[in-house]
Simulated assay, not measured.
Amino acid sequence: MSDLPDTDYTQRFIFDDRDVRGEMVGLERSYAEVLAKHPYPQPVAQLLGELMAAAALLVGTLKFDGLLILQAQSSGPVPLLAIECTSDHEIRGLARYAAEQIKDDASLADLMPGGHLVLTIIPVNGQRYQGTVELDGKDLSECFTNYFVMSQQINTCISLAADGIRARGLLVQQLPADRQKDIEEREDSWNHVKALANTVKAEELLGLDNETVLHRLYHEDAVRLFDIQPLHFRCSCSRERSGNALVSLGKHDALELINEHGGKIEVDCQFCNQCYQFDAADIEQLFAGGGVDTPSDTRH
């Protein structure tokens, strides 16, 4: 049996004698929740899992309070992958795809040719940040590594793996000079950590516990592994948010929309497939300031 934790998590580690830190992530229940919402082909399910793992890694790496959004976009068979992860470790995700165009052995380049990755951070307080990088790596692991090195100018190495059942990720990142002041020593140290991180195999990430993975990679180093931080699936949709979207249309247009749809409209959440219904009485209540807590008697 696997020794993997039975809940989804992120887990941080540091090197006692090097200016390097790391993060590991494991997703199983939240991954299953996301995949249960749509009949994803295996290559799409794998990409979605890898992007979920990347989002969880980044939330643990970028210290902020708010929401992180990862979107991979292309004009290919998979035009969109979207993951949202909060600083409270709540995650959700979806993909749009053309199933008839997807082969079982499709690569990232096959699925998302000419694509790009957009990272958006929306803090509770402070300014919104957005960064973009081309999806020009052989896989998402290489694309994210390129993002940090090129866009953030931070030495980083990321490995991602997913198989439709679990998704895992490993990140190692160089820290500002502290234990190692000498430039050449720092460079040699980082090259050592990166070279070993690049040897990790997908089957190791997916099948072994974190302590075993780290021991296999860095058994000659002093590595400290911290407590796991739980992570779970949660969709942020609500009837209230759907009602607010209708309010933004204006009362006249919202009522017209309901009339055009035979007396009621449905607002669907693409992430979790939850459906929220509204009729004319609901619209009147919304614009009278009554909110959505008490739906009308005509809505089922």
Rank of each mutant, 00 (worst) to 15 (best):
N259A: 10
A32R: 12
L47S: 08
R216Y: 08
T199I: 08
E23M: 07
R18M: 15
V247D: 13
A32M: 05
H89S: 08
A98F: 03
Q153L: 11
F271V: 06
C275D: 14
G93R: 06
D104W: 06
S248K: 13
R179D: 12
A55L: 06
M150P: 03
E184D: 15
V247H: 04
Q11D: 09
Q73D: 12
S151P: 08
I154V: 12
E204S: 15
Q173P: 10
T61M: 07
L67A: 00
Q152P: 07
E284Y: 01
D209R: 01
S74N: 07
M24T: 05
E84S: 05
L51K: 09
K194H: 10
I14L: 10
V292D: 01
T120P: 04
S30C: 12
T298Q: 13
E203I: 12
A53Q: 08
Q11G: 05
A106Q: 01
L81V: 09
L80G: 11
I265A: 00
V25M: 01
C272S: 03
P113S: 00
Q270C: 11
L205M: 04
G114W: 02
P39L: 11
P41A: 07
H300N: 10
V292Y: 02
D297V: 15
Q153K: 13
N244T: 09
L111I: 00
S296F: 14
R299T: 15
T10G: 05
D16I: 05
L57R: 03
S189P: 08
G93H: 03
P79Q: 07
N273H: 09
D268C: 14
V223H: 06
T132D: 05
S236C: 06
L68E: 04
M112F: 00
Q270T: 14
N146Q: 14
Q130G: 13
D104H: 01
V247R: 06
Y9M: 12
R21L: 15
Q277L: 04
F13C: 02
I102G: 00
A280Q: 14
S2H: 09
L208G: 01
S107D: 09
E260G: 05
G290C: 13
C272G: 15
D3H: 15
P5E: 01
E204C: 10
V133A: 08
I91F: 07
V193I: 15
V44P: 01
G243F: 03
K63E: 07
L117P: 04
Y40H: 00
L111H: 01
A222C: 13
Q73R: 10
G137A: 04
P113V: 01
P123G: 02
E50K: 13
Y40G: 02
H232C: 09
V118A: 02
S296D: 13
